[in-house]
């Protein structure tokens, strides 16, 4: 198996030299993104784009194979009465559910089109020994995961043990083989935007294909300021190394309006090249329905009710 890690990973950068974040400036910038007026055709395009960027997620202790099959069914058939809807980018499940999701999608002949993403590395806390995390990653990949969502060791990061976190990400990157690696920073536990920026730089240098805000298990999850800081880090990383890294805000994005504001922010920070499911994802479960309801509203002119859309 080839190891893209060796090509995508670079030495641990001096994190003390990473530029500081102007929090007030970030908040003001974000406030502006929320005031853009997106009308009619553009709105419709944004709604469909957002729909195609969703990692339809179920990460609960009560998940069953039946629930995961149902999620896959939803991923394939979002709302068949509206023709021309895109399908979601991926389904995101726990490692033990990867096989179920893989089979459900393969049976429908959608293997390449809808990816299977698996969280791994002792999600959500990451509090396990490295060899277990690596083993878990390998199992998820062997079961058929196209993408791995790993969590970083926040404890090690916060105490300044950047080398450990860096090596861990690089090791998981190797364990992933062909699978894409998304690195969850869990920004709700990092405290400041400066730390978010440092963690982003670290993860990208260690070989992340995507950086992701949150597990969804900690509040606050994804926020626009945090996402903007990460997008800026991606931009600067691209200028520095020429390598394009994807972004995935996750947790708390459940309304179409908010999703469109994220897309505005993406467009104005990273540009058109990132405006595709290959480079931007929403980690969400209830967002899909709200997007569909808004698309239906755009088409019929009538505000919709959740009663007429499948729950999961």
């Amino acid at each position: 198996m080839s190891t893209p890690a060796s090509t995508s990973s670079s030495p641990l950068p001096r994190l003390d030299l990473v530029s500081r974040v102007d929090q007030t400036g970030v908040e003001e910038r974000v406030a502006r993104f929320c005031k853009r007026s997106i009308k009619k055709a553009s709105k419709m395009q944004a709604l469909k784009l957002a729909l195609g960027m969703i990692d339809l997620t179920t990460l609960e202790g009560q998940d069953t194979p039946g629930k995961v099959r149902q999620l896959c069914q939803k991923a394939i058939h979002l709302h068949d009465s509206i023709p021309g809807l895109p399908h979601v980018a991926a389904v995101c499940v726990y490692p033990v559910m990867v096989g179920v999701a893989r089979k459900a999608l393969d049976d429908q002949g959608l293997a390449g089109e809808i990816k299977v993403a698996s969280v791994a590395t002792a999600f959500p806390s990451g509090m396990s020994p490295l060899h277990i995390k690596l083993e878990e990653t390998k199992i998820a990949v062997a079961e058929g995961a196209d993408e791995i969502d790993m969590v970083i060791s926040r404890g090690a990061f916060l105490r300044g043990d950047y080398g450990y976190v860096f090596d861990e990400i690089a090791a998981v990157r190797d364990a992933c083989g062909e699978a894409h690696l998304k690195v969850i920073l869990e920004t709700g536990e990092l405290g400041t935007l400066d730390q978010v920026r440092r963690a982003s730089v670290l993860a990208m240098h260690a070989g992340a294909d995507f950086i992701k805000t949150s597990t969804g298990k900690i509040q606050p999850a994804a926020t626009m300021p945090v996402t903007l800081v990460m997008l800026q880090a991606i931009r600067d990383h691209y200028y520095e190394t020429g390598r394009q890294v994807g972004m995935k805000p996750a947790g708390g994005i459940s309304k179409a309006k908010l999703a469109i504001q994220y897309l505005v922010m993406l467009r104005e920070t990273l540009g058109q090249a990132w405006m595709a499911p290959e480079w931007f994802r929403f980690g969400a479960s209830s967002l899909a329905n709200d997007l569909i309801m808004q698309i239906q509203k755009q088409q019929t002119g009538v505000y919709q009710s959740a009663d007429y859309f499948s729950k999961d």
């Binding site: 002119g301 009663d307 007429y308």
Partner: peptide
């Protein structure tokens, strides 16, 4: 119209 048409 809004009061009468809203699906919810």
């Amino acid at each position: 119209e809004q009061f009468a048409a809203h699906m919810d």
